[in-house]
Design a protein around this nucleic acid. Structure first.
Lengths: 228, 228
DNA sequence: TGAGTAAAATGTGTCGACACTTTTAAAAAG
DNA sequence: CTTTTTAAAAGTGTCGACACATTTTACTCA
């Protein structure tokens, strides 16, 4: 008897046409390929991707749920318009949700997960040394780190909200506002303090540090955008 | 020249078939008319409501976005199954988000809104006197109160998450778990303290009080469900 | 020439039909 | 009678078509 799927009951992971389309469009929107604020023509997009309008419509519906497009009856869908105000709002929501995530992570992350995150962080540290605090870290590393903390909360609602809804919107801003941070060294340190609090199983402190971390991240963004 | 619509640019508020269907189904699910955990047959539901499957499908998609139904490819949609664990998770998310909402409300609510909320609260107080702390308050009054605070945050993301996504799921639990609170007097008092903090424009205190309020509300639910 | 109107073109909302998948029921094998 | 195989039924995913709404274009009249 050979090795098959892991012991889990493997539901046949069917990927529907709408699924693929949704992923494609989401990526295109996040990366600015489809311009922010632009109108979406159903017939045209459907033709471009070789699918029927029905399938496209469902995909657009999901994008709407993630607040990447806005839709008005009979007028059609537009890609959301990015704004400074909205970005601040997102940071406020993140502060609340990720603060709670950190609190719960301090209670619920397994020792193994904490150890893995520790190595990930060490890896980041090395990269910062190398490139002297350059871009890569903030761009992907930061997201990875936050992603793991959120997962560590084990709260599926929280995870869904942050990793499905907000995550992509935030990525969209990072892409299109060119938000490379000049404080990766400081962010790295903050990540360390936070992880220590989690490892010490101190929920109160973990939440506090996460909120501070996101707040300074927000201030950094504010400064950066005002220069512009 | 006669009075017309208020000065706002009145986009023709067209209500699409899918919209109506969505509202109907949402109500039915929240109130338990369509049983929690039950499978949804598209052809049957479509026939019952006299619409095509396409429209129904879009409505189901929106319900899925609000986490009122779960969908698996080729297997169809089911109404979510309510669970104790999930309810706790929702309270944790609420604590984070509404805490932030209260903080922002202390900064952003207008004096007028605060005054109105004050009268609403007085009204509640009278009702509690009358019926000696009976059901009505917790059921609708509590929701109204929280709703206004959230609106007062002026953060559209926060408002969307709480008033669109979470609100109905929470109502579903209240309906189906028969969650009438025996602590309406205490809740009323807590509402008062919180409003005072908001009126004093003290964000820190407002957040603290809101979080405490939701936490005790959660503890109350825990107790109630363990008795059962 | 320009404001207003009519008509064409485009776009969205809704529907019914068909292909393929899953579930149920019936038949066959042990 | 239980288990396996096969066939029917029901259900979901996807499509193309049509009705109505909105936008654009062409035309009329001042």
């Amino acid at each position: 008897m050979q090795n098959r799927q892991p012991t889990e009951k493997s539901d046949p992971v069917t990927i529907t046409l709408t699924d693929r389309l949704f992923d494609t469009l989401q990526r295109a929107i996040v990366e600015g390929e489809i311009q922010s604020g632009s109108k979406i023509s159903e017939p045209e997009l459907a033709r471009q991707h070789g699918v029927s309008r029905g399938s496209l419509r469902e995909a657009i519906g999901r994008l709407e749920a993630r607040k990447l497009v806005e839709r008005k009856p009979n007028l059609g869908a537009r890609v959301v318009t990015l704004s400074y105000e909205q970005l601040i709002e997102i940071y406020q929501v993140r502060e609340a949700l990720e603060g709670m995530a950190a609190r719960l992570a301090a209670q619920n992350m397994s020792d193994r997960e904490i150890a893995e995150l520790q190595s990930l962080l060490d890896e980041h540290g090395r990269q910062i040394e190398e490139v002297h605090g350059e871009a890569y870290f903030q761009k992907q590393g930061d997201l990875d780190y936050h992603y793991r903390i959120v997962q560590g909360s084990k709260n599926r609602h929280l995870i869904g909200l942050l990793c499905n809804d907000l995550y992509h919107l935030l990525r969209m801003y990072r892409f299109q506002f060119g938000m490379r941070s000049k404080r990766s060294r400081q962010a790295y340190d903050e990540h360390h303090y936070l992880l220590n609090a989690i490892a010490a199983r101190d929920p109160e402190m973990a939440e506090l540090l996460m909120r501070q971390h996101i707040r300074s991240s927000r201030r950094n963004v504010e400064k950066m955008l005002l220069e512009n």
